[in-house]
Computed example of a mutant assay.
Amino acid sequence: MFEYHGWIAVKETAVGDDDDVRLRQIVDELRLRVADMASPYLLDLRWMNGEPFIHLGGSANHRSSPDAIDLFEHVAKVAPGSYGLLHVRDDEDPGHENEMRVLRLARGAVTHHTEALLSPCIPTLEDPFTA
């Protein structure tokens, strides 16, 4: 299972005074990438209060590419002022099968962390399987 829930505030730079023309170009490019992902799950890029945001969430049997993690890494490259969080549960991720992971996007980098509030998944979220 590959479950994910996240958001990104899209910013050209961390300075706080993005060039509106350049930011709109970045958002237009991201809109094409989002459309190419053709996700049957939640994947939304919209302007709110004059600023662009991406919201995403879903649950699939397996991780596929491109996916939410790829999108986070792409945004880090093209809009390094962006920030956001992505919570991921991937029972096929070696060494992290029983963890909820959180990816942090900040200052052009994506870092991976164990989400202490929801890990270990068994028994925090679910009972152990008994046959």
Results as ranks from 00 to 15, higher is better:
residue 45 L to H: 05
residue 16 G to F: 13
residue 106 A to T: 07
residue 38 A to R: 13
residue 76 A to L: 02
residue 50 G to W: 15
residue 34 V to N: 02
residue 122 I to V: 15
residue 46 R to Y: 10
residue 96 H to E: 12
residue 85 L to N: 05
residue 130 T to P: 02
residue 77 K to T: 13
residue 34 V to S: 02
residue 51 E to G: 05
residue 72 F to I: 02
residue 17 D to V: 09
residue 8 I to A: 05
residue 4 Y to M: 07
residue 53 F to A: 03
residue 15 V to I: 11
residue 104 R to S: 08
residue 2 F to H: 10
residue 81 G to F: 14
residue 77 K to F: 12
residue 27 V to E: 02
residue 87 H to E: 08
residue 86 L to V: 10
residue 126 E to R: 05
residue 44 D to M: 10
residue 115 E to F: 14
residue 30 L to C: 05
residue 26 I to M: 01
residue 13 T to F: 12
residue 49 N to Y: 10
residue 26 I to Y: 00
residue 119 S to D: 07
residue 75 V to C: 07
residue 62 H to I: 14
residue 98 N to W: 09
residue 100 M to F: 06
residue 72 F to W: 03
residue 126 E to Y: 14
residue 84 G to D: 01
residue 47 W to P: 01
residue 10 V to L: 11
residue 80 P to G: 02
residue 76 A to K: 00
residue 3 E to W: 07
residue 20 D to H: 04
residue 22 R to F: 14
residue 108 G to E: 08
residue 29 E to T: 09
residue 100 M to I: 13
residue 29 E to S: 06
residue 129 F to I: 14
residue 123 P to M: 12
residue 64 S to K: 06
residue 76 A to D: 01
residue 32 L to I: 12
residue 32 L to C: 05
residue 3 E to M: 12
residue 19 D to H: 11
residue 86 L to E: 08
residue 104 R to A: 08
residue 124 T to D: 06
residue 53 F to L: 10
residue 18 D to F: 13
residue 60 A to K: 03
residue 56 L to A: 08
residue 94 P to Y: 12
residue 104 R to P: 00
residue 106 A to P: 02
residue 69 I to Y: 04
residue 89 R to T: 09
residue 8 I to R: 01
residue 85 L to Q: 07
residue 70 D to K: 02
residue 42 L to A: 06
residue 104 R to T: 14
residue 95 G to Q: 07
residue 53 F to Y: 15
residue 50 G to D: 10
residue 114 T to Y: 05
residue 14 A to E: 07
residue 66 P to S: 05
residue 125 L to A: 07
residue 44 D to W: 09
residue 40 P to N: 03
